[in-house]
Design a protein around this nucleic acid. Structure first.
Lengths: 218, 218
DNA sequence: CGAAGGATTTTATTTGTTCAAAATCAGCAA
DNA sequence: TTGCTGATTTTGAACAAATAAAATCCTTCG
């Protein structure tokens, strides 16, 4: 059985590789995502390759095999269902659930997971709007626009926040920018790197381009 | 911070030492309770002693220090609250919760634990009737009689089952012997080592002395 | 082309946890 | 007292995961 460490590597590789289609994930990316020194990931890459979970090309990077991806998706499913569970059932704050889920995802059995899934009514997205893989390993791969690339004036609905950092999430929460919130962009200043929009409740807000990139809408 | 392994040792030592008041817990007991070879526990005992969590007397055994006991009680609290949670909220079967809790108890944060505690209405016993230590580390130490030492004819109420083995718990469940069930002993055969009693619903059951010892009543 | 720089891999160590098997000890029995 | 037996400790080795620092390899730039 895969250790927590292995599960973390696989999950992280999955997350990295679904953002750059096709090419292998460089070891440096994996190392910084997991907070270990690069040397460690090289060692791990070899051992994952030995177990048939990734394809490893030295000096290039790794890519999940079919089996590795299946496992990674299962970990991701656990992670996201747990996050939703923590918010919906236990009433934890938006910004604190990621770390909790990070630990729980490795010890929750399938039995418990399916109970949670049922209790939540078989949801399809987690609190950040990230899609929850199904038990069979299917995941909604629909790609959304981020705020900074949207036309002015049109009504938009936030559907996903792609940054789990507590400070950022607290900012999102404090300003009512959770998935589901509706807004209209009123002004975009490319030079200043800012973007101004109004929320449905009339409030107006200005944020930087880097923050806007982390907010996906439809 | 204590690793899962350390937490397991402490919890197990606590469980052993509360059943034999005063004397140190021999290493052999610890080893078999944790399913490791005796040599391993000797090594661990020394390192726990170095951290000030136990007092270790070579060839005698270990005893928790105040600090060790505090930690152990906290682990036990997590374990028992989680068991109750799994039964009450997620609807898991009686006999399958122990193993689940065994893994979860090491990754649940205090924050989550207190949410669970509140959700359950601040319970004092887990599904097996075992007392749940408070957040402050107090535990109900009331000692109960076991079935095999009780007088005939008197009405008794089951309050605790002291064996977590799934097969035994399934037996208990199938015969309606959960904590709360009421019964009257009708016959005790010391020679045959059996004990017969009738449940409130009129059903009559005969069990062996070893099983009777694991059922505590009041 | 050749050197510089950044990313990656190697190598040698460390930490935590475990096992197998040999060595030691304590208490009891003859 | 001697010796046995069963419990405990020691010793040597393994595995998973990580680090630090030296070595190596691409790519690109002058």
């Amino acid at each position: 059985m895969a250790t927590s460490t292995v599960e973390n590597y696989l999950k992280q590789i999955l997350l990295e590789q679904q953002r750059v289609e096709g090419s292998p994930v460089p070891m440096g990316k994996v190392a910084s995502a997991l907070g270990v020194v690069p040397g460690t990931t090289t060692t791990m890459a070899k051992s994952l390759a030995d177990s048939g979970l990734v394809n490893y090309a030295p000096r290039k990077g790794v890519r999940l095999t079919e089996e590795g991806e299946k496992l990674a998706l299962h970990v991701l499913r656990r992670h996201r269902l747990i996050e939703l569970f923590l918010v919906e059932i236990l009433g934890l704050g938006w910004s604190e659930i990621h770390e909790e889920a990070e630990k729980l995802e490795h010890v929750i059995s399938d039995k418990v997971l399916e109970k949670i899934d049922a209790l939540l009514g078989f949801p399809t997205v987690d609190p950040h709007g990230d899609p929850i893989p199904t038990a069979k390993g299917k995941i909604d791969a629909r790609s959304l626009e981020n705020l900074s690339g949207c036309p002015l004036g049109e009504p938009l609905r936030i559907s996903r926040i792609t940054d789990q950092a507590p400070e950022f999430l607290r900012f999102i929460e404090n300003n009512g920018l959770q998935p589901g919130a509706e807004l209209k962009i009123s002004e975009q200043n490319r030079v200043a790197g800012t973007l101004t929009f109004s929320l449905s409740k009339g409030k107006t807000l200005t944020i930087g381009a880097s923050a806007a990139k982390k907010i996906l809408v439809e």
